[in-house]
Design a protein around this nucleic acid. Structure first.
Length: 636
DNA sequence: AGAGGATGCGCC
DNA sequence: AAAGGGCGCATCCTCT
């Protein structure tokens, strides 16, 4: 038997189906923060709608459904007009739903226990039944962990009740509203109450979270994330206009190419097979054609390239085109009736970066599909502001590596790859590195940021250059490889040593962060975000710090733009974000562009400037060109 | 049938 | 001692 303390459950709990006595319930919800949760017909806000509203405040929680729903929505709208403090769990979703169902728009930042939980611990909390390997940020998991241990059981009971109605086949969560109202209300009504309890705890934890000297308070970061939620919500709602006719033509072309390749490959193989199936390809390659196995049974790009067989070459092409077909199709099915694509942005993933679903994030850049993205209205133009070398700039800032600091500060066209190459290969000031040397510099810059070891660098080199080139580079670094040694591995070793002596501060900074991470359990980025890392993941610390800083800089920039330029007419609007690339629509006024860039950049808070480059087009996203803003006239 | 793992690929 | 970082998606395949 478990003891459930009084404070672990709401004192007053209502299920309200009609308007009788509803005012009494509202009265009880009048004070303090208001917890809000919606129960919906599904997860897609473009088609699904709210079926029940759950509200909580103080010692009361209430579940409004059926005839009470409209009245509750109206009451909520009133509270919002009064700028009542609202607390959600995954509020971006609920705000979409409330807007689409009731026409209620929320124009001020709300609180969100999902965002809070992720800021406090990106790993989440253990689920009760699988505490050792299953962690997440779901409301009932958090409630179970922080509030009381029966929270999950309550949900299980609810799910069971739903299953009694719809059977055990599909994803029942979407069918929430089919359960008897009595069951829905009993457990569903508790959700916003749990949310409030979590909010009370989290806000205090965020308030008191200790930050290292010189780093922003966690509350500042949370504040920015709250604004970001609004910016993302509006960006998702607006969506991205796609040229459907173009997309259909583009898709047909990709399909024709795929089919052609399929035919060709079948003829070549002598029989038809499914070229999407690796087991079938393995059988053909290893057993019938008896090709050499390069890397176990893998059939990835690298292996196929090294096989150097006509079918392997064709397979690579086919994979590319068939991927274009499937993801192009997905794009079309995701369009709304106006031809807009509404991506979904995941605000907090482990590094602090955002991820996106239903969008362009992973689309091949050279596929030409970006031509389908067009301005949503006549007279509007597309603009894209790209943070320039932002991760390398943060690496420079944190490490204090002088070559990088000076380069970024003094040379607007600073070439980091050439700079590293010059140092590694010991070139004098004025001597430019050869093409090959610069390429080694580029490889090692990425290796540095990603924490690549010797093996990774070796295979990267094998991938990119010939043995002769590798030999040549070794010699340039003062080592003549013998016949028996792999020039790639030797070069990897030499390059790593060269980086270490070229950028000693970068090296020691990387090691220091690794050690600190082992002590504290997490690494902190420039904006005060801490990412938890196990001891055996501590080697990721430097990468996390740099990637997280870049991500949070972009978020801060977006919020700056949103708060200043987007709250008015909406003529300017951010429509997409691809990590360090922020795409917006505008009227083409260069003064606006100048302001956007100024809001995105940061030229004073770090030891190197964080800058953004502007590109644009009035036609589509693909055909954008660099824009040089006219010099601002200076007052004499 | 549906869930989830494995594999592979693309973006930053 | 080991490890290029982060993500989402399509497809195939195995298990239940």
């Amino acid at each position: 038997m478990r003891i459930v303390y009084a404070s672990e459950l709401p004192r007053y709990q209502y299920i309200v189906r009609g308007t009788d006595g509803i005012q009494e319930v509202f009265d009880r919800l009048e004070h303090g923060a208001l917890g809000v949760d919606t129960e919906t017909t599904g997860f897609d806000w473009t088609v699904d709608r709210v079926g029940a509203l759950c509200l909580a405040a103080g010692d009361t929680s209430a579940f409004f459904v059926k005839n009470a729903l409209g009245r509750a929505a109206k009451w909520l709208a009133n509270q919002i007009k009064r700028r009542r403090r609202l607390v959600f769990h995954n509020g971006k979703f609920d705000m979409h739903m409330i807007r689409e169902t009731f026409g209620i728009h929320i124009a001020y930042p709300v609180h969100d226990t999902l965002v809070m939980s992720r800021l406090l611990d990106n790993r989440g909390v253990p689920k009760e039944r699988f505490p050792f390997w299953s962690f997440n940020h779901e409301l009932d998991t958090l409630a179970n962990f922080y509030v009381h241990m029966d929270a999950s059981d309550a949900h299980t009971e609810l799910i069971d009740a739903i299953r009694d109605v719809v059977g055990r086949r599909k994803n029942q969560l979407a069918d929430w509203l089919v359960a008897p109202v009595r069951v829905q209300g009993k457990y569903g009504g508790r959700d916003p109450w749990y949310t409030l309890r979590l909010y009370d705890m989290f806000i205090s934890m965020i308030q008191h979270w200790p930050q290292p000297d010189g780093y922003p308070k966690l509350m500042e970061l949370y504040h920015n994330e709250r604004w970001l939620m609004l910016a993302l919500r509006d960006m998702e709602e607006r969506g991205v206009k796609l040229d459907q006719e173009f997309l259909h033509r583009w898709l047909a072309k990709a399909k024709r190419r795929t089919d052609k390749l399929t035919d060709k490959m079948n003829r070549r193989a002598g029989y038809d097979l499914n070229w999407n199936s690796n087991p079938q390809i393995r059988e053909l390659f290893w057993e019938e054609l008896e090709l050499e196995q390069v890397d176990g049974e893998k059939l990835n790009k690298k292996v196929l390239l090294r096989l150097d067989h006509p079918l392997a070459t064709l397979l690579l092409q086919r994979r590319k085109h068939s991927k274009m077909v499937s993801s192009g199709r997905a794009l079309l099915t995701n369009l709304d009736s106006r031809g807009h694509l509404h991506s979904h942005y995941n605000q907090n993933v482990d590094t602090g970066r955002m991820s996106a679903t239903k969008g362009f994030h992973q689309f091949a850049r050279d596929s030409g599909v970006r031509k389908a993205v067009v301005p949503s209205k006549k007279g509007l133009v597309l603009r894209s502001a790209d943070y320039s070398q932002v991760e390398m700039r943060f690496a420079a800032h944190f490490s204090g590596e002088e070559t990088l600091i000076n380069g970024f500060n003094n040379d607007p066209k600073f070439d980091t790859h050439a700079a590293l190459a010059k140092r590694m290969f010991g070139l004098r000031r004025k001597r430019e590195p050869s093409h090959g040397q610069r390429d080694r510099g580029k490889t090692m810059n990425f290796a540095m940021l990603y924490g690549a070891g010797e093996d990774a660098v070796t295979s990267q080199l094998i991938d990119k250059i010939s043995a002769e080139e590798a030999r040549q580079s070794c010699i340039e670094l003062g080592h003549i490889p013998s016949r028996s040694e792999s020039p790639f591995r030797s070069l990897a070793k030499l390059l790593r040593d060269a980086v270490r002596s070229s950028y000693p501060r970068m090296w020691s900074f990387t090691k220091e962060e690794e050690e600190l991470t082992k002590v504290f359990g997490y690494v902190v980025d420039a904006y005060g975000y801490h990412r938890w890392l196990d001891e055996n993941e501590a080697y990721k610390a430097m990468n996390s710090k740099v990637q997280g800083s870049a991500a949070h800089k972009a978020k801060e920039g977006m919020v700056n733009v949103y708060r200043e330029l987007q709250m008015g007419t909406g003529q300017i609007a951010i429509i997409m974000q691809v990590h360090d690339d922020i795409v917006y629509e505008g009227d083409g006024d260069p003064e606006i562009d100048r302001r956007v860039i100024a809001l995105l950049e940061d030229r004073k808070n770090f030891s190197v400037p964080i800058t953004a480059d502007l590109k644009g087009s009035d036609k589509n996203w693909q055909d954008k060109e660099s824009i040089t803003l006219p010099k601002k006239r200076r007052l004499a």
